[in-house]
Structure formats: structure tokens, C-alpha cells
Simulated assay, not measured.
Amino acid sequence: MKIDDMDAFVAVIRCQSTNLAAEALHLTQPAISRRVQNFEDDLGATLLDRNTKPLKPTAMGLRVYAQCKAILREIDTLHGLVANAGAPSGTLRLGVPQTLGDVVLLETLAQIRSTYPQLRTQVSNGWGSSLVARMENAELDAAAALFPPGKTFPEGIASQAIARMPLKVVAAKGSVGKRSGKLRDCAPLGWVLNPDGCGFRAGLQRALSEQGLGLSINLETFGIELQLGLVADGQGLGLVPEPLLQSSRHFEALDVIAVSDFKPQVELCVFHPRYLGNLQEPVALFAEVVQRRLPG
């Protein structure tokens, strides 16, 4: 049984396509198919249902996939033990949601480039849950995201809760008669929020639903600064972590609305595979810059 064959099988399940798996591993599609077939022959089991599109694993394929991921993580650990003695080099793959990227990325990338000139950086955007999934699939070396307090991470991923911060409801300055009230009072004004998939939005929607209220979206767009600019222009209410509000150029044009029955909080977490090899110091620098840019 060859590790390359196992790696090809894991890539096919992750990508749900032999073509995409081939791109990910820089191989041809026939080479991927051949490696997966060799892996099945070695195990004496059918691991893929080839009658479905996209490709899906069989019941046994799912069990083998989980075991293969664990084996490949251990192999990465072995490589890390050897590589740990050398200076950081190669590629550092970082993940951040756009909510944080606008604030932390410029300084993070400049610091890493200055401190570790041999190291190249790649950055991916995504919601926190998707970044965790990508890390489980060995596609990221470190990530930062905002989660509900007490978030638990899968085995093999280490995490550090850097800060806990409240989410604030904001409106254009002077646009709301009372700067306090209940969630029901906010509902008719509508919201300027991230597109569906955002944890802030999901939490707000749950809170409204519990009161029998619907979520009225006036505008949905990525980027906290853009959202706060639209809120300051009177386009609706916003929902933003307090440190990002305080650092925004729109801060003086906004009022914070004290909502007595909606006081959400989020935790800023930096997470990474448990074994980092020679990337341990750059990842620590990444966490340091994130903490400095987004104090609790």
C-alpha cells in the first residue's frame, strides 16, 4: 500500500471529483484514477460509488477516509519532527474571514515577510466553519476566526481563544429616536449584514425567530467597513464586534443601540494543526499580530 495512493483517495473524496483532485495534487486525471484503483485493490474493497455525480464514497469508503486522514496527519507530524530544526521556509497557508482580513492582513503579511524572508504566504477567505473543515483536510496551516464562546475544535487542531468581545447593534447617528430598546423595536428598521453563512447573521436570526420575528435584510455585502458605511448612510442597522466598530473610520457617524434582550458575544480564536514543524514560530507571530490588531 502506497502513501501516494492513499493521498489520491483522500483528495478525490475531499474534492468530490477526480479532475479537481488531479489539480490539487498537480497530477493528471488518469494518474489519480489509477492510484485510487490501486488503493482499492490493495484493500480488497470498493471505496467509491462511481454511479453518482459528484463522486461519493461507499459506506466502507467513508470509514476508510476517516482512517486515512488520521494516518496522513501522523505522517505530517513525522515530517514536522524532521523539519522543525530548520528555518521556516516554503509556504504558510493562512485562513481568515473577510470580517477580520480587512483589519489584520496587511500588518500580518508585512511582519511575516520581514521576519521570515524565505517563507511565502497564501491567504484564503471563508467563514469560520469552512476554515476548520479546510484545516481538517490539511489545506491550511493557521487561521483566525470569530466563534460563539466555548467553541470546540476537532481532534488534531489546537486553538487559542485570544479575546471575547461583544457584538454591537449600530445605526446612523441621530436616526433612531431611542438609543435603547428591545429586539422587536429593531425589526422594522431592517439590517445591513453579511451574506448567508455568517455566524453573526445566524445568531441574530435565531434570536428573532425565538420571538416570532423575521429577519429583514435591507442590504447584504461582505466587509465590515462597507457595511458600517452603509449603516452610517441610513441604510439600516448593523451588527459588528466592538473592537472593529471602535477602529472604524465611520465610528463618529454611528450610534450604538442598547438592545436589552440581545447581547451576543463572540470569541476570537487562532487555530492550527497540533503539529506545525518549522512553521511554529510564524504561526505564533500570526497569532500575536491578530491579538494586537483586535484587542478584547
Results as ranks from 00 to 15, higher is better:
I3C: 03
D5T: 10
D5F: 13
F9E: 05
L20Y: 07
E23V: 05
E23L: 02
A24H: 14
T28F: 02
S33C: 04
R34L: 14
V36M: 12
Q37H: 14
N38Y: 09
D41E: 13
G44A: 10
T46V: 15
L48Q: 10
D49N: 15
P54K: 04
P57N: 12
A59C: 01
A59V: 13
M60H: 03
L62N: 13
L62P: 00
Y65M: 07
A66E: 12
A66P: 00
K69L: 15
A70W: 11
I71S: 15
E74T: 08
D76F: 06
L78G: 12
H79V: 03
G80W: 07
V82H: 11
S89N: 06
T91Y: 10
L94E: 06
L94Q: 05
V96F: 11
Q98S: 15
L100Q: 01
G101K: 02
D102Y: 11
D102Q: 14
V103M: 11
V104K: 09
A110Y: 05
I112R: 09
R113L: 04
R113C: 02
Y116D: 08
P117R: 11
G128S: 09
G128V: 00
G128M: 00
V132D: 09
N137G: 13
L140C: 10
L140M: 12
A143S: 11
A145C: 05
P148I: 06
P148T: 11
P149D: 01
G150N: 09
K151T: 04
K151W: 01
F153G: 00
P154K: 00
E155M: 07
I157P: 03
S159P: 00
I162H: 12
A163S: 15
P166E: 12
L167H: 07
K168F: 00
V169H: 04
V169K: 03
G174Q: 01
G177T: 14
R179M: 13
K182T: 15
K182F: 12
D185P: 04
C186Y: 01
P188V: 00
L189S: 13
G190W: 04
W191E: 06
G197E: 12
G197K: 10
C198A: 15
C198D: 15
G199P: 04
A202C: 01
Q205T: 07
R206G: 03
A207E: 08
L208W: 02
S209A: 11
G214F: 09
L215W: 14
L215A: 15
N218Y: 02
N218M: 02
F222K: 04
I224F: 03
Q227E: 13
L228R: 15
Q235P: 02
L237M: 11
L239Y: 08
P241I: 05
S248D: 11
H250K: 14
E252M: 11
A253M: 06
I257V: 08
A258H: 05
S260R: 13
S260G: 06
F262R: 06
V266T: 04
E267A: 10
L268T: 05
L268N: 01
C269T: 02
Y275Q: 12
L276V: 01
L276K: 06
A284Y: 02
F286W: 04
E288L: 07
V290Q: 12
R292N: 13
R292L: 11
L294C: 13
